[in-house]
Simulated assay, not measured.
Amino acid sequence: MTLKKVITVLMLVLISVSSFAQAKKLDKIITKDYQVIECTISKMSDKTVDYSMPNETMTIVIDVSKIARIDFASGRSQTFATAENTIDSAPTSTISVSANSNATFRVNTVAVLPVPFVNSENMTNSEEMAKFAQNDIYDKLLDKSSNILPLTVQDLRTTNSLLRKAGIDYKNIDETPIEELHKILGVDNIVAAKVSYTVTQNQTSAAYSSQNAKVNDNKVKANESTVANTNTQLLFDYHVYFDMYKNNSKIYTQNRKPLFKLKDAWMDSVSYLLKRSPIYVK
Rank of each mutant, 00 (worst) to 15 (best):
M129L: 10
T109M: 15
I60T: 13
I70A: 02
T59W: 03
S52C: 11
A103M: 10
V110R: 06
T40W: 01
I87D: 14
D50S: 06
N85T: 13
V61P: 05
A103L: 05
K43G: 06
S98M: 01
P114F: 04
I70Q: 00
N108F: 01
D33K: 02
E121W: 03
D33C: 02
D88S: 15
A111L: 08
D33Y: 01
E121G: 04
A90Y: 09
V110A: 08
F105Y: 09
I95Y: 02
N102T: 14
A68E: 09
T104Q: 13
K43I: 07
S52R: 06
T79F: 01
P114L: 04
T86H: 10
D88K: 11
S45E: 10
I29P: 00
D71W: 00
V115H: 04
A90Q: 13
I70W: 00
T104E: 15
Y34E: 08
A83C: 14
N108M: 02
E38M: 09
Y51T: 05
R69K: 15
D33S: 01
Y51Q: 06
R106W: 06
I62S: 06
Y34T: 15
M58S: 12
E38L: 07
F72H: 05
D27T: 01
I41Y: 02
T57L: 12
I95E: 05
P54I: 09
Q35L: 11
S126Q: 05
S89E: 09
I67K: 04
N108L: 03
D71M: 00
F80C: 09
A90S: 13
Q35N: 12
V107S: 14
N122W: 03
V49E: 04
S126V: 02
F72Y: 07
M53N: 14
S120K: 12
A73Y: 02
I87F: 11
D63T: 14
D88V: 14
